Amino acid sequence: MNKRLSPWRLGATLYMPATRTDISDAILKNKIAGLRSLIICLEDAVSENDIPQALNNLRQLTLMLAKAKAAGGNTHWPLVFIRPRHAEMGELLVATLDLSAIDGFVLPKFTLASLPCWWNLMQDTHLCMMPTLETEEVFDVLQMRELATTLKHHPCHQRIIALRIGGNDLMNVVALRRSRSQTLYDGPLGYVIKMLVAVFSSRDFALTAPVCEHIDDHQMMDKELALDMAHGLVGKTAIHPNQISTIEKALMVQPADHADALRILNSSQAVFKSQGSMCEPATHRRWASEVLARAQVYGIATEQAQESIRLLTTEA
């Protein structure tokens, strides 16, 4: 069984419709600066009429990637995932395509009821999984608790990199669209994200943050990313390349947090003061480990980045 990849390797995960003909450039030629992971989408981003074209594009792409990987050319590639339209399409992809260069599947509209079907088609592959939580059931804490408990003890657990929170689909369930003047946390999704963090993170699952669809509002993006980080989310969906650098900057570790994390993991004291705050290794150790794992991938923020955060906090 393939061990799951670290969720910290996801960064800003860019969605690209499978109808696009330039996906190979993003993977093979590093045409998108800073791209760590991308999802080739066959679901919501592709209309029903375009499915044949999308499948044909994907077939050609997977052959090209498999050939390049066999030649040892995948050292610096971003992680590559495919988002099938449904489990039946996923079964078709596994049966007919060369997926040797693909890292995993994003599982749309994932529920407890759909788990057996998805696992049946994926268990004998090398593919990792990123289930997407985006249906009516997600608003029910009891159903989410049952799902999280089942996944924790299921053989698929070691294949799940992270669970993706599908913000737009969840807003659609309650007949809303996110406000242009507020973060996603200011509406009903604020409750949902908090609940999912409580239910899934406590069972050792990582969660990724929903997309910020207001592409040109960088101030809104910064505010929302600060809240994403405060909730322990490990990355964020991107829908445009110009969002990648902003997400990457937010994922950098603040120097004060890095210093505290090192002290917590290396101290023999039960409780001590650091930078004006109490540190208690018994309760802060998991946080400290995650901080160092994130710093290893994204680095430590510079003074300029810290100043941007101070200004943002002041303006807020």
Rank of each mutant, 00 (worst) to 15 (best):
M64R: 04
R9G: 11
A230W: 02
V192T: 14
Q275L: 11
S289R: 14
L196A: 12
L99K: 04
H218D: 13
M220D: 02
R164K: 08
L196N: 10
G34L: 06
T149I: 12
D103W: 00
D22E: 07
L251S: 11
A45N: 08
N168P: 00
M195D: 13
S274G: 03
Q60V: 03
N74P: 02
G190Q: 10
T314A: 13
L163D: 01
L184A: 12
I264L: 07
V138E: 06
L61G: 01
S289K: 14
Q219S: 08
L133R: 09
A259D: 14
P78W: 01
Y191D: 12
I244Q: 09
D260C: 11
H214W: 15
K3T: 13
Q243S: 09
L65Y: 02
I215V: 15
Y185P: 03
T111Y: 01
T237R: 03
L227Y: 04
A288W: 04
M278P: 00
N30K: 15
G276W: 08
T135W: 02
M195C: 11
M171F: 08
V271R: 10
S267G: 04
E248H: 15
S245E: 15
L127T: 00
T21G: 02
Y15V: 11
D186F: 02
K273T: 13
E280H: 06
A198M: 11
I32H: 05
A305W: 03
S37G: 04
S268M: 11
V234N: 04
W119F: 15
E303D: 13
N266F: 07
I40Q: 03
P155W: 03
L58V: 00
R83D: 00
A282P: 02
V253Y: 09
Y15M: 01
T283R: 10
V80T: 08
G166A: 06
A68E: 13
L63T: 02
I102V: 14
G276H: 09
K223F: 13
T246G: 04
E290Q: 15
V199P: 06
P17M: 07
L312Q: 13
A226C: 08
T132H: 02
M278N: 04
L147M: 12
L184T: 07
D140L: 03
D222W: 07
F81E: 02
G11Q: 12
L207E: 10
V106A: 09
K152R: 13
P78E: 05
W77L: 01
H86L: 08
A301K: 14
D222T: 07
D228W: 05
D140N: 15
A12E: 03
P210F: 05
Q275F: 10
I309R: 12
D186S: 15
T314W: 09
Q123M: 09
R310I: 06
T149Y: 05
H157V: 10
A175N: 14
K152H: 08
E136R: 15
H154I: 05
P116W: 11
N30M: 09
A45E: 09
S267N: 10
W118Y: 11
G187S: 12
T132P: 01
H240G: 00
W118C: 00
L63F: 00
S308G: 06
H214E: 11
R263K: 15
D204E: 14
E136D: 11
A18V: 02
S100N: 12
D216H: 14
H153Y: 12
A68G: 01
D228M: 10
